[in-house]
Design a protein around this nucleic acid. Structure first.
Lengths: 195, 195
DNA sequence: TTGATTGCATACGAAACGTATGTTTAGAAT
DNA sequence: ATTCTAAACATACGTTTCGTATGCAATCAA
């Protein structure tokens, strides 16, 4: 077995802990997840945890950052092949709604995350995600496609609507049927921004 | 001292506990609030708490129900003197945004509540509040003011947008200025539902 | 080679929740 | 009027969990 570099081993440890935390937080929720169980599942102990992440909140923050990055990437992919900017924006929003259907994202990003870490719009990546939406909106405002509203305000409203739609869908008996209704209503609502 | 009826005394202790819990949950957050301190502040002990509410979650549920009722009442009041149904709906939504500026409502209803009790749309009163919005929307759809979208979907989107706007405003440096921008954008967005 | 620092495990103390067990008091039944 | 039952609340205890302090091994510097 080749001797691994030190920094590489640290990264492995961090990755294993984050991985275990994702599962534990998603399945049991943040507060019910035990650090002992969680680290044991990763083949480590709480010592590794406190050494690498400081405390339980720090671990959640790391998990949130990782998922946030994945979500941002998926939104970019969803918008990639859109016919125009406006369509791209809508497709991103729909992708956001669909992602929020996944229990892991629901629980960690939409429920426990805000409660433990505070306002999501202060998170580093979340702002990146939001700034993307905002800059697209600003472009559409500048070229006259949209009404001259405040771009950040519009971005937050759209995100909020999508987020709530996702929560609704996830709790529904028939998620697929509800998804269709939600997306339809969302697309209509969004036209309110058009000139 | 007149001997109080039994049921009346029980109501008093429940009210005292809920009152103390509102303050503790709002100031320290749900998980950081100690049941010992909380009950002591109410002049009681944990015995009264577990007898009346079962567990910590039960107490939060009672607090949430109380605040929910107050919010519903305030929304009704905001809509009371509107010129028409559409204006009433908008005024209700603006009132919602403004209420969510209060730290108590933010912390308990928007952050800890969903994280601990699950999807807010399943709460008894929250559905009442939502059903109100929904029924107003349905009326406006039926009389041709609005596009024929799904009323529940639209209600949830509008609520979600308002909620996120509120979170944004509350975290802003200049809440009043941001409030104006948010309300302006919200009113524009809402026109997307009009025929 | 030796000393120092990093990475992680183990041991410990404090706090909090829920339960189990009293104790008092209001009403019912006789 | 007396006795009995059960509700309303207090107190004591056990379990769990978090965070810290300490210890040990491996790696890198000198």
């Amino acid at each position: 077995m080749a001797a691994k570099r030190r920094a590489q081993m640290v990264e492995e440890t961090r990755a294993k802990l984050i991985q275990a935390a994702r599962r534990a937080f998603a399945r049991q929720g943040y507060s019910a997840a035990s650090m002992d169980d969680l680290t044991a599942a990763a083949g480590l102990t709480r010592g590794a945890l406190y050494h690498n992440f400081g405390d339980k909140k720090g671990l959640l923050q790391a998990v949130v950052d990782q998922i946030d990055g994945e979500m941002l990437e998926r939104m970019r992919a969803a918008q990639e092949h859109a016919a125009n900017q406006w369509q791209g924006l809508l497709q991103e929003s729909v992708a956001y709604i669909e992602m929020a259907l996944e229990p892991e994202i629901q629980r960690i990003m939409l429920l426990d995350g805000p409660a433990v870490l505070g306002d999501p719009s202060q998170w580093p990546n979340q702002t990146a995600c939001l700034r993307r939406t905002e800059s697209i909106l600003q472009g559409l405002i500048d070229d006259g496609t949209l009404k001259p509203v405040d771009a950040e305000a519009a971005a937050r409203l759209i995100n909020g609507a999508a987020l709530n739609a996702a929560l609704w869908i996830a709790a529904a008996d028939d998620p697929q049927a509800v998804l269709k209704k939600a997306v339809a209503a969302f697309l209509e609502l969004a036209t309110g921004l058009r000139r």
